[in-house]
């Protein structure tokens, strides 16, 4: 009888110790998952743009930890958290590097835009002026054929359209896209100038 009581007490003691141990791991485990979720939330938008596959992997890993929390497997959470944390840190590095890359591209595009925004309208104006005059001429000059004038008119329209897209993109806060369109406009304008013997 005494032995049975003793065993019962020992079993209860072990259970109590385990309960205390588990309770002691619950808080750090819960905090670890919350910290990981907060880390991901802070970079989610950019991560979705720049590293969607890595983001999905990190989020899946955190979902796994949350399932372990639900099962009260705090020890398992604490054991697995460092690997997930490393994965999230890696994702943060990728996002941070990409942000720097995008920032540098924006600065470079803004510089190029300053040049193009001065050049392209002047180029378009010069071509437009000559096209307007040549369309009033009874005959074309020796160095400009009818086809060349037609090509210049087509190039002029393309340059104007691309320049419209460029200014719209710049107004929308996208200097990179603006520069792409502006380069296209300059290319069309240069070809038109060349067709008119002005290049």
């Amino acid at each position: 009888m005494n032995k049975a009581i003793t065993l019962k007490w020992v079993a209860m003691l072990i259970a109590s110790v385990m309960l205390v141990a588990c309770a002691g791991q619950k808080e750090p485990a819960t905090r670890a998952v919350a910290d990981l979720e907060a880390s991901i939330a802070s970079i989610r938008d950019d991560a979705a743009k720049y590293a969607s596959a890595e983001l999905q992997q990190a989020e899946a890993a955190v979902v796994g930890l949350k399932e372990q929390l639900t099962r009260e497997d705090y020890k398992g959470v604490i054991a697995a958290a460092p690997a997930v944390s490393a994965r999230v840190a890696s994702l943060q590095q990728v996002v941070s590097a990409k942000r720097e890359e995008v920032k540098a591209a924006m600065v470079a595009a803004s510089d190029e835009w300053r040049t193009l925004s001065a050049e392209v309208p002047q180029m378009v104006e010069a071509v437009q002026s000559r096209v307007d005059i040549l369309t009033q001429s009874k005959k074309l000059p020796k160095n400009v054929t009818k086809d060349a004038l037609q090509a210049a008119q087509t190039g002029l329209e393309a340059a104007k359209a691309a320049w419209g897209d460029a200014t719209a993109a710049f107004s929308a806060g996208d200097p990179v896209k603006a520069v792409e369109h502006a380069r296209s406009a300059k290319e069309s304008g240069t070809a038109a100038l060349s067709s008119l013997g002005m290049g």
Binding site: Q122, E125, A126, S129, L134, K139
Partner: peptide, 29 residues
């Protein structure tokens, strides 16, 4: 000043009519 506009340096014997004829094909311009 438009850097893309053409320039021409007048030569002896030139007239605006002659220059317009050369560049536009029509002296009247």
């Amino acid at each position: 000043e438009n850097p893309y506009a053409q320039k021409y340096v007048v030569k002896k014997g030139d007239t605006l009519w002659k220059i317009a004829d050369e560049f536009y094909g029509d002296g009247k311009l």
